[in-house]
């Protein structure tokens, strides 16, 4: 197995090889052991400064990155657009170059526009980690999802995964599809046709409109959140109708002939895409995903920093 990543930045899963992903997983396993020690901190990144730049709201991802950075002993600065000079009209490159002038080595960025981290990577001299760009990619989420499947089921190759919900607006869906396909899993997407992107089949996935059939087929169901904030049009008649057609509840699960693993990237809309009894059931690995998120992000930061010889 390779010992170094083939990339300098983590912009998307698209740029990673299957070897890169396996290296991130094996390193994350080591870090998972580290964060379960009495002292959960290692000194690897003590000479690295990381800036978390969030142009869009986030709770889990931001906390998870910050914790990962601190457990690697990196120095951390946080920046969010509210109360910053961005509202005074500063450009992205200027904002970031000003931050880099303060000797920052790595940038973790979330941005509402697809491609913003890629654009930035052409102009600045720092490792860039995409923490979500518009409806494009959210690579660390996909890595932690696939890692959680691997930890729960032993492997990813050959597993059947269905991604349910708003595929059209979801960066988690795209990154998940790319990651799972690279690792050899079979992927279906399920949801109302209005929330399916055109040409999605070209990624090697199939569409299933019937939730029950999709669940009957799969080993793992990844239930996405309905992103009401991104929907400027009406894509389905009402939330109630969506829940009746695509909401996961205990009744549907009980009708399946085998137990399946339930995942959710959070934040959960309880009672919309998933009911509380399912979200809190033994089959749900939602909180394992959160724990694995810190380990995966530590692995990504560590491996990218290793390539940074500044």
């Amino acid at each position: 197995m390779a010992t170094a990543l083939s990339v300098k930045h983590l912009i998307g899963i698209k740029d990673l090889t299957a070897d890169d992903i396996e290296l991130i997983f094996s390193t994350a396993e080591n870090f998972k052991e580290v964060i379960n020690r009495p002292i959960k901190k290692v000194p690897s990144l003590r000479d690295i400064t990381v800036a978390n730049i969030f142009f869009e709201n986030s709770t889990r991802t931001k906390l998870s990155f910050e914790l990962a950075e601190k457990r690697l002993s990196a120095d951390v600065i946080n920046f969010s657009t509210s109360g910053s000079s961005v509202s005074k009209g500063e450009t992205l490159i200027d904002t970031v170059n000003n931050i880099l002038a303060m000797k920052v080595d790595m940038i973790v960025m979330r941005h509402p526009k697809a491609g913003a981290p890629y654009f930035l990577s052409n102009y600045v001299n720092a490792n860039i980690i995409n923490a979500g760009d518009g409806a494009h990619e959210h690579p660390t989420q996909a890595l932690l999802d696939a890692f959680s499947i691997k930890q729960t089921l032993g492997d990813v190759a050959g597993r059947k995964v269905v991604i349910v919900g708003d595929i059209l607006h979801s960066r988690v869906a795209l990154s998940n599809i790319l990651c799972l396909k690279k690792l050899g899993a079979e992927v279906k997407v399920c949801g109302p046709l209005t929330l399916m992107p055109k040409y999605i089949e070209q990624l090697g996935v199939s569409i299933e409109l019937d939730l029950k059939k999709a669940l009957q087929w799969c080993d793992v169901a990844n239930m996405l959140r309905i992103q009401l904030e991104r929907q400027d049009l009406k894509y389905f008649p009402s939330l109630r109708e969506y829940t009746m057609m695509y909401g996961l509840n205990k009744n549907i699960l009980n009708q399946l002939d085998k137990p399946i693993v339930i995942m959710h990237p959070g934040p959960i809309n309880r009672g919309v895409e998933i009911t509380s009894d399912v979200a809190d059931s033994e089959q749900a690995i939602i909180l394992n995903q959160v724990e694995n998120g810190v380990a995966i992000r530590m692995a990504v930061l560590y491996l990218l920093a290793a390539n940074n010889k500044n």
Binding site: N30, E33, P43
Partner: peptide
């Protein structure tokens, strides 16, 4: 015990050190 994350030559080596299991 694995010491990879405690090495003093991280980022100074040509190759990235591969971590092993700690138990």
């Amino acid at each position: 015990l694995d010491i990879t994350f405690y090495r003093d030559d991280f980022r100074r080596r040509a190759e990235v050190a591969k971590a092993n299991a700690t138990k």
